[in-house]
Amino acid sequence: MNQSRVGGGDRLRIELAILRIDWELDGRIPWRVRRRLKNELRSNLIAAAESNGAMAAVSQLGDLRALGASYLEVYRGRLDARRGAWAALITYVAVQALAIAVFLAFQSGIAAGGGHGGSYELLPGFGPFQGSVNHGFEMEILSPAHLVLMLVAFLIGSRAWRALPRGIRRGGGSAAGTDWRPGP
C-alpha cells in the first residue's frame, strides 16, 4: 500500500489546485487525457509537497488558469463542448425571454380589449411563440423547436464541423487527419 507523508490538509490543497486546472480543460479535451494529466499533476505535486510543503508546491505551479491554458494549447480537441453548452444555454434563455415578451404583449392586448382569454401562435408550428390566456396561462417551456434551436447553437458554438474528418469537411478526398492525437 502507498504511504505518503503528505497530510489531509495538504492533500486537499493539492486536489483544489488540480480541480482548478481541470476546470480549464473540462469539455475541451478528451476525458482520458484529462485523467492522465490529473494523475501526473497529482504525483508531481505530492512529490513537491513532500519536499517543500503543499503550499509551496502549488505556488510553484504559478497561475493555475495559465497552466490549464498551456495544457489546452497542447491537447485541445476539435470540439469545444463547453462553448457549445454555453451557446445552447444562452439561446434557450434568449428564446424564452422573447417568448415571455410575446406572451406579456398578448396578455396586455387581451386585457386592453376587455377579453377574457384567447390563444396565440406567432409563428405557426414554432413552439416558443405560442400560448394561451384563459383562467390561467399556458406557454411552452420546452418544445421540439427549443431543442432544435439549442442543438443548432451547440453545433455552432462548439464548432462541431471541425470534428468531422477533413475529407468530409472538404466534400471528399482523404478522411484522414484529426487535431487530436493521443500521446505515446
Binding site: 494529466l37 501526473e40 499533476l41 508531481n44 513537491a48 508546491a57 510553484q60 505551479l61 504559478g62 497561475d63 495559465a66 497552466l67 498551456s70 495544457y71 494549447e73 497542447v74 491537447y75 492525437r181 500521446g183 505515446p184
Partner: peptide, 21 residues
C-alpha cells in the same frame, strides 16, 4: 524555471513524439 512551465513542455514533447513515457 518553475513547474508550471516544465509540465506543459513535457506534455508538448510527448505529443510531438520527442519523448516516450
Amino acid at each position: 524555471i518553475h513547474e508550471g512551465s516544465v509540465y506543459p513542455a513535457l506534455s508538448r514533447l510527448e505529443r510531438e513524439g520527442s519523448v516516450t513515457a
